[in-house]
């Protein structure tokens, strides 16, 4: 590696230049995001005020509430799986959405990257144009498409493939589809962005060495996509966990995900400390996973 790979000016020491590049974004996040979340961290140890907000009395109740509840009748403290079930469901749904997004996006990103320069940009816009429509409206439109009397079921019935409408809406399947629909470009674009610079001579060389297509794809194409794959997975997985519109609208509101649960605490349930505590736990889990990923990536880079 060169001593001054990306320094902007030879007169400014690289360390200082780097700080100048890095700190504006760090500062704005630390000030307008981390500091407010610090307030929320404090709130998670306080008591809920009667009608929203907090009272300044210390309490760890918000954290014990996540695993333990007072019995409806005899007021005894007992373990409750309610919130764990909701967290597990959220992680499961988000994982499915991420994997399916990957399966759709890798070929799509590859296909786009092999187009001409003009076609590439047209494809990029083509992928993002639907997202000029608000997420809520898009989700409702997807529901109408999937519904019992929607075009998908009508077409299948007209073709004689089915006689009864398929249960495509108001269930877990619809939630998964909704999450994919919400976040697909967040996978396609980073993958494309990482892969676009791919040198296709590498592929030709592999074939010259009699590599099969499968081997060529997994050994040559995928590793180049890897940074985009990590970026895309983060951009799909993390927002999916906290998603609330897909379960509300496509799932028919019959099951909660953690986004709904936390939202309710700040709204109808008026229990800000509990909502804050739930989000602190979620934040901690995400942070641990992210750090683990970052460490692994760094180790791999050193190996290379």
């Amino acid at each position: 590696m060169s001593a001054r790979p990306l320094a902007l000016s030879s007169r400014i020491p690289p360390g200082l230049a780097r700080a100048g590049l890095l700190w504006p974004s760090l500062a704005i996040i630390l000030l307008f995001m981390v500091a407010p979340i610090g307030i929320m961290f404090t709130y998670s140890f306080l008591t809920a005020a009667p009608y929203g907000g907090v009272e300044w009395t210390f309490s760890g109740a918000a954290y014990t509430e996540i695993l333990f509840e007072r019995d409806f009748l005899d007021d005894s403290l007992a373990f409750t799986p309610d919130y764990l079930i909701i967290v597990a469901r959220s992680v499961f749904q988000a994982a499915i959405a991420t994997v399916l997004c990957l399966l759709i996006s890798v070929p799509t990103a590859y296909y786009i990257a092999t187009r001409s320069d003009r076609a590439k940009n047209i494809w990029l816009f083509l992928i993002t144009i639907p997202y000029w429509v608000n997420l809520l409206i898009r989700t409702i439109a997807l529901l109408f498409v999937l519904r019992g009397d929607g075009p998908v079921n009508s077409a299948l019935i007209d073709l004689g493939l089915i006689s009864q409408p398929l249960p495509l809406s108001y269930n877990g399947f619809a939630i998964s589809l909704g999450l994919i629909y919400s976040f697909l470009p967040f996978m396609v674009l980073p993958l494309y962005s990482a892969f676009e610079r791919f040198d296709f001579r590498l592929l030709d060389a592999a074939y010259d060495l009699y590599a099969s297509r499968r081997v060529a794809f997994f050994r040559i194409v995928l590793p180049v996509m890897r940074p985009g794959l990590i970026a895309g997975s983060l951009l799909v997985f993390i927002p999916s966990i906290g998603s609330y519109l897909a379960p509300d609208i496509l799932g028919g509101g019959k099951t909660l995900m953690i986004g709904n649960l936390i939202g309710t605490q700040f709204q109808a349930a008026r229990n800000w400390p509990f909502g804050a505590a739930l989000s602190m736990i979620l934040l901690t889990i995400t942070l641990i996973v992210l750090l683990w990923l970052a460490r692994r990536a760094a180790r791999q880079q050193q190996l290379n």
């Binding site: 996040i29 630390l30 981390v34 407010p36 939202g263 700040f266 934040l283 992210l290 970052a294």
Partner: peptide, 18 residues
């Protein structure tokens, strides 16, 4: 890296109220 991806990790409603 963690600070730069931090805004992604907090559920929207929490960011909103905070």
């Amino acid at each position: 890296y963690v600070v730069l991806t931090f805004p992604l990790m907090v559920p929207e409603i929490v960011t909103a109220v905070a």
